[in-house]
Amino acid sequence: MKRSWWKGLVVPAALIVAAEIAMRLSNTTSMSLAAPSDILAALLRALFDGSMLVATRDTLASAGAGLLLGGLLGLLLGMIFGLIPIVNRLMEVTVEAIRPIPSVAVLPIAMLVFGFGYSMEIAIVAFSCLWPVMILTRAAMAGIEPRLIEVARALRLSTTQRIAKIVLPAALPRIMVAVRLAAAIALVVAVTVEIAANPLGLGYGILVAQQGLQPDLMLAYLVWIGVVGWSLNATLAFAEKRLFGRAAQVEAAGA
């Protein structure tokens, strides 16, 4: 496996070279496509003049704040639902009625309430991150070894102690999986909101580049969004592996 890592690079490299040659041969100034070398030049230009970094900061800040808000709320609700079965049963219909609403459908509501800006984007990201975190946390609560709860009862731990010392540590690897999933969703939703409505960040940058008929810049933004998404995912996967090691892998395989 280690010896064949270069194989993954063959096809993308061939595609890039083919695109470069095709664009150079056709020798037209396209309004919709650009040669890879031009895209790279546009990418470097936008990175060095800071515009792309500012956009990245805006997007990541909104996605991060939304993830934090929605994640904490989801964690809290998931713990309540997971630990108190009767609440879970009573809220079943309500949750199932709200959950299928597509995240972008709340966009106009957020627009109406908050107007344009960070708060609207954060609200939508929080709404979308809430559900996966809540559901996975709820499942994690149900998956806690019952004997641990018995131990907590035998030790006469108070509810807060029980949550802090037994429940959270036992469920943490699974919650981490939920956070990684929600982080990917947060970035996707943030970019989507920016493209659809919000004049901020990377999504807006790519839209402006398209409307300004700058295909090289537009594709540079697309490549950059891909790089940001991939790095975020890779960082979180690495952190998960580092923090929980085997536990996370076993849990992920079992989930």
Partner: peptide, 26 residues
């Protein structure tokens, strides 16, 4: 799989909505 999987894994986290401006341009 050896040739294509790494590329697909790289493209996976790309938000699909980011392709909308490109699709509009094309």
């Amino acid at each position: 799989r050896a040739y294509l999987a790494p590329m697909l894994e790289f493209l996976r986290p790309l938000p699909a909505s980011a392709t909308i401006p490109v699709a509009i341009a094309v």
